[in-house]
Design a protein around this nucleic acid. Sequence first.
DNA 1: CGGATCAGGTGACATCTGTCATCCGCCGCC
DNA 2: GGCGGCGGATGACAGATGTCACCTGATCCG
Lengths: 200, 200
Amino acid sequence: MIRLLIADDEDMLRSALAALLELEDDLTVVAEASTSTDAVRLAREHRPDLAVLDLEMPPADGLHAAAEILAALPTRIILVTRHARPGVLRRALAAGVRGFVPKTTPAARLAEIIRDVAGGRRYVDPDIAASALTEDDCPLTERELEVLRACRTGASISEISAQVHLAPGTVRNYLSAAMAKLGVGSRHAAAHRAWEEGWI
Amino acid sequence: MIRLLIADDEDMLRSALAALLELEDDLTVVAEASTSTDAVRLAREHRPDLAVLDLEMPPADGLHAAAEILAALPTRIILVTRHARPGVLRRALAAGVRGFVPKTTPAARLAEIIRDVAGGRRYVDPDIAASALTEDDCPLTERELEVLRACRTGASISEISAQVHLAPGTVRNYLSAAMAKLGVGSRHAAAHRAWEEGWI
DNA sequence: CGGATCAGGTGACATCTGTCATCCGCCGCC
DNA sequence: GGCGGCGGATGACAGATGTCACCTGATCCG
């Protein structure tokens, strides 16, 4: 019997998956979490064989939760994401995640993937893997990503500079560089593009 | 036997819901759609008793699909949404939707709601209904919403003006008005806020 | 040691943006 | 007809933003 933890902030999907997986003879759901902190806590508590984590989860994303769980337990981890991009896949694999599944995957297929990963194999969605091999990697530096992240809410230069503890002029330079790399004309367009690509 | 159409662009959730609802003795899923256009087409084709539509669905949102279906068929409609805000609820009810369910609702509860609505009753999530009665309504005009929608991708004034077929100066006026109403200092912050509130 | 490189910062300049007062044409209405 | 309200547009102005050249310390390496 494979013991599962399921974490997704969307109750409807999480409960539906839990119910469906519970119907399988060899799977059982021992814990459900709706936040990344709960996911880590419940993983320590229940020590599941495998954790299915949503990537987009407050307060920290699923990748952070995955890293914390992997640091403490031998649990295998499958990341599920709505917005699957090659950049995210790279980071996930680097963190030691064993399965990477976009939410375009039918629920029925998930049970098979869980068995595969629990059995020691890895699973990466073929479409995303192909993209990751052909598409360009993220051209932005860590600093550039940081300022772009800070400007997603529509913040002004001075607000961004306060958030990242840099001089306003420096922030403008980083943003200017990022805009040039992404081929757009404003920091907001740059932030939007970077988000679309899964880089922030 | 209640015949259902299920439409959601997220395959994982749609397939999971379809599988779970199909397990109920009195429910059967006669069609699944992943786009709003498919939803309308399949509704005409299969004439389901009830359609469960996701609100966030390309190319037009679920509300448009709901309106089209309601204009052509006696089908009852339940809207499901990830980002449930009072403003959206108002628009949905005005369009003739009979059920309004956020994705924070557990999947098991959905079957009961479907029976209720199929039986002629209405269902509105209590939390959202309460918010809708207490919270302020959207203070923005249709035009203001339009320009804010167009600037969500980080577009410049001239790009927005091209998209909405207005003079650049007029666009600036609308944006200025929207920013004043929302109490923010840039159009991007205004767009972000309006999105958070579920107004665009 | 001396140069190369790089993160961070500064200042000047051209544009873009946001604000505001104002104007025009259209519609409804007393 | 006259009048006001309204959607749309214009123009002037201040401040924010993007660009670019260049400076300052670290740090690394031959």
